[in-house]
Design a binder for these strands. Sequence first.
DNA 1: TAGATTGTTAATCGATTAACAATC
DNA 2: TAGATTGTTAATCGATTAACAATC
Lengths: 219, 219
Amino acid sequence: MKRVNKISKNQLQRLPAYLYHLQMLRASGVNRVTSPQIAKDLDLNVELVKKDFALVSSTQGTPRAGRDIDDLIHDLIKFLEYDKESTAILVGCGSLGRALIGYRGFDDFGFNIVAAFDNNPDLIGTKIGELTIYPLERLNEIQSIKKAKIGIITVTAKAAQLVADQLVKAGIGAIWNFAPANLMLPSDIIVQDESMASSLAVLSHRLKMKERSLKRKLK
Amino acid sequence: MKRVNKISKNQLQRLPAYLYHLQMLRASGVNRVTSPQIAKDLDLNVELVKKDFALVSSTQGTPRAGRDIDDLIHDLIKFLEYDKESTAILVGCGSLGRALIGYRGFDDFGFNIVAAFDNNPDLIGTKIGELTIYPLERLNEIQSIKKAKIGIITVTAKAAQLVADQLVKAGIGAIWNFAPANLMLPSDIIVQDESMASSLAVLSHRLKMKERSLKRKLK
DNA sequence: TAGATTGTTAATCGATTAACAATC
DNA sequence: TAGATTGTTAATCGATTAACAATC
């Protein structure tokens, strides 16, 4: 059995940053890149970059000359599967739901929101861009046609569990949860929480540490 | 010198989840909680929960009886500084900016967006809730009054670097960046990237792994 | 008391960082 | 060639998990 190269969460999270940066460099006429250069640009450890590139690259880099930027971009796109269409349905057409539906960056990732739901009668039947908002009752029916892989939850914390249950019942295998709630779901369902609270906790703590060290220096 | 207990990023990210869950439990009449119970609820390792609670708690837990839920909630709020006001200004009043300004959860975290900016003439002077949208030119002036700690960037990737530079010039110490761009800033400025691309990369990968293992089982 | 839970110490695991030979 | 960069192996670091004595 071939040993599959495992990739860590951190590693995965770095890949889009590389891709974005490489595309910027290419746009400014750069043809080749080296690990030390990218490490410097993105403020990362060189060995980290070397290993990341080695993992996604289909070719070896050449000592001293680095890698062809087009090859590397191509390999990253391939690895991240940005060249394959991936579909999602979204429940909750409040401001955050609208923002996600309108997010233009998703195109670049091959990511497509193919249906939107809400249970507010005022919203049902109205459009957000190309998408018509459907009532939640039609979730099963529409998902059976669209067969989306991912369900996006942008409802209130209170409604989130109920919506999650309905998405699972409709056959969704993964949930991208933007509601501040701890969803309880079968273990085979993938749940990814996008928690403002967690992000803010990290940011606030970093800020606090910074302020403390400034105060120490002032003494 | 007293050794300061360091807290890791992961640990910080778990704290709001505990708090939310505990508040739910309290609302349903629970008075005391134990680590094994919370670990089971949130699908975490027991030792992890024990250490997290030990870190934030002002009191010791009692064997067999666990902790008083109110005390623990209080300690978490204290630790996360949700009882202290924290302010931010936001640049970019598109749909995402609007969603953040309208996000009601921030109140619970003591987090307040106190000014909003955009350079679209159609938006300037209009209101989002209580906030008036100001032109970017007035950033310095308004920040000198508001003295916000955090700058939120919800502009396009193209404009992000420029906006970041202006925020830094206006005296902002930390940037919460929602634009898909790699900001290059002085090292003393805290930058926290909220990357849709990174999140999606992780989610897609998890989904891919799941599909693979399902296929293997079907053989 | 018995047994569950506590706090804490030790073992394991995995990711990052450092070191180094190979090579263009 | 000289020296920078490559891929890879070893060392370090930190977080998670396991183990266990103390105790209510």
